[in-house]
């Protein structure tokens, strides 16, 4: 025990260095977190008295087909959007970073623009691209002698559209992350590889990928956390209507059930289940991508 205290005292500067985050956490987050835990076992309409309902909120949730549907939708959209996007982003960053590429800063800004472009413009574009009757894509399909696709009438179609929106918005963003991550790879490694006559592909798999592992872990973690909190895209795509079939994500479900229908305790319960789902998947990610870190 005395050793421990000594150890702590010895490292006091380090505690000071990490203290801002935890001070802010204690000040601004602890109470709300405990309160929402408490709320998750209550029934409350937001105004009247709270009634303790035990785990009824949870049992209702697990018996509600809409909840499971939302979970399926969410996982589908998440995989559809993030898997391919992260891979393409990594390749894109690698390519932009190649010495043969000219106008690097132009490409950087061009690919990053979707992330800056205001949602108002994005929504108009995507709605008019994927429209059933007047959509640009269907127009070209008809020109090519193919059939129109009713994108927004089937779950699969809607998920593809939403995944496309997400990939489009975050491809450049993730590429920028990788691009800055590439800067932490010493150049002499590449030079040595070149001397050994390695091809571009070999360099990518033998040097870039392993060296980027912590950065890949970062992007995977962030897209897991973001992917289970998808909200904006399905909501804006549907406009003022209720979400399209197959597009109701967990956060949308939580908002609708809880905050629109005034079942506040229930919303808190959903958010805690969501917390555990994200936590579980994050731990898996951590185990898979964190192997060689230390």
């Amino acid at each position: 025990m005395g050793n421990m205290l000594k150890e702590i005292y010895k490292n006091r500067a380090l505690y000071l260095f990490i203290s801002p985050f935890f001070i802010l956490f204690l000040t601004f987050s602890v109470f709300p977190i405990f309160f929402s835990m408490y709320l998750s076992v209550q029934k409350w309409d937001g105004l009247g008295e709270m009634t303790f309902v035990g785990f009824k909120n949870f049992s209702y949730m697990f018996s509600d087909p809409n909840f499971w549907q939302a979970l399926v939708n969410n996982v589908a959209i998440w995989l559809l959007a993030n898997g391919p996007m992260l891979m393409v982003a990594l390749v894109l960053a690698f390519v932009i970073n190649l010495s043969i590429v000219k106008f690097k800063s132009f490409f950087r800004i061009a690919f990053f623009l979707p992330n800056i472009t205001a949602m108002v413009a994005v929504v108009i574009i995507f709605q008019s691209m994927f429209g059933n009757e007047y959509g640009l894509i269907n127009y070209f399909l008809v020109q090519l002698g193919l059939d129109k696709v009713a994108w927004l009438n089937s779950s699969t179609g809607v998920r593809v559209v939403i995944a496309a929106m997400i990939s489009w918005r975050y491809l450049g963003y993730n590429a920028i992350i990788f691009l800055s991550g590439l800067q932490r790879i010493p150049k002499d490694l590449y030079e040595a590889a070149e001397l050994d006559g390695a091809t571009t592909a070999q360099t990518f798999f033998k040097i870039t990928l392993p060296m980027l592992r912590p950065i890949i872990l970062f992007t995977v973690m962030m897209s897991t956390i973001g992917g289970f909190q998808i909200f904006t895209e399905p909501q804006v795509l549907a406009g003022n209507q209720s979400p399209y079939p197959g597009s109701e994500t967990i956060v949308l479900y939580m908002f609708r059930e809880g905050f629109v229908y005034q079942n506040y305790g229930y919303a808190a319960a959903v958010s805690w289940v969501l917390f555990f789902i994200i936590g579980l998947i994050s731990i898996l990610n951590w185990k898979v991508f964190n192997k060689s870190e230390d």
């Binding site: 043969i100 490409f107 623009l113 979707p114 489009w168 450049g172």
Partner: peptide, 19 residues
């Protein structure tokens, strides 16, 4: 490589251009 990038750029830039 440049063709690949330019095609990507067109997709990325279009909504902004439209704005």
């Amino acid at each position: 490589v440049h063709t690949f990038l330019v095609i990507g750029v067109i997709f990325s830039i279009f909504p902004f251009y439209w704005l």
